[in-house]
Amino acid sequence: MEIPYTFTARPDTGLYNGKLGIWLFLASEVMLFGAIFTAYLFVRLGADDGTWPDHIQNVWLGLTNTIILIVSSITMVWAWVALKERKFNTYRLALGITILCGLVFLTIKGFEYYSKYQHFGFMIKAEAFSKYEPELKKMDAYYSEVPSQDPSEHVYEVRGHFRAETADTITFAPDGMPSYLINLAGKENAEAAMGEKAGEENASGEEPTLTLSISDIHRYGRLLPKYGTYYAIYFLVTGLHAMHIVGGVVVMLYFLTIGSALYRRNPEQLSNRIEVTGIFWHFVDLVWITVFPILYLT
């Protein structure tokens, strides 16, 4: 029994089954990511002033990953073209590079996750904040006010790396001002005025630290989903995206190794399969290109 049009196009639709299938699957993927982006809009527009973190991502890492994915999309097309031209070795090379790109992407992503895991955020009660404000100002550290209708919920947020802990205090190295804010203030002046700057090592290789007493903290935690909806969305979108990358890499590894045996029997079918994989891979790339500005650049 033979299923018609598994790798020849049906004349009136101009498609073979796999190609239609992947497009339909992508339609559902669009709805999946679309729903998450809608959720992003919901929580972002609904966020109270001051609660939506901006520019906390490392843009350079994100940009590197964007470029890596774009390159991998190109090599993916290259692999397909090579197959069409029946250049098997070129195909293997191009697919290999694509896989490599996927893996590098995942490594960088993992590194970014790890740095979120290392990072802490602290919500300091508004009435206690005046104790810490001068010191934070002095080291030019980042902080932001989170107002609330309910006075017991009015807090200030600071972020930094955890350093030490006692029964009733926590010591951490505060983050500096995001660079774009410093630029607004005039970087030179700021540097001239202060001695130690938050987020920058001093001569002895240490960052300035701040000690908070636990009773002054409303809430604190690692920059993980629990800490805030931004992080929840961030981990959700990038995690789901990373899972797609993993899926793509696994499929490509299969076509690089066992699956490539098909080349000898039916190269046309293999090239169809690579085309279908490629369509998927471009979509995953496209998702990242949407994620990047939304989560990194704003």
Binding site: A27, L32, L224, K226, I233, F235, L236
Partner: peptide, 28 residues
């Protein structure tokens, strides 16, 4: 095909709210 994925996304989010303690579906 088109209506189910949003529920799948929502399911992931609710799972995250339950397991990772995020609060995508609850206010402060």
């Amino acid at each position: 095909l088109l209506a189910f994925p949003p529920l799948e996304a929502a399911a992931f989010m609710q799972l995250m709210d339950r397991l990772a303690g995020s609060s995508l579906f609850s206010p402060a």
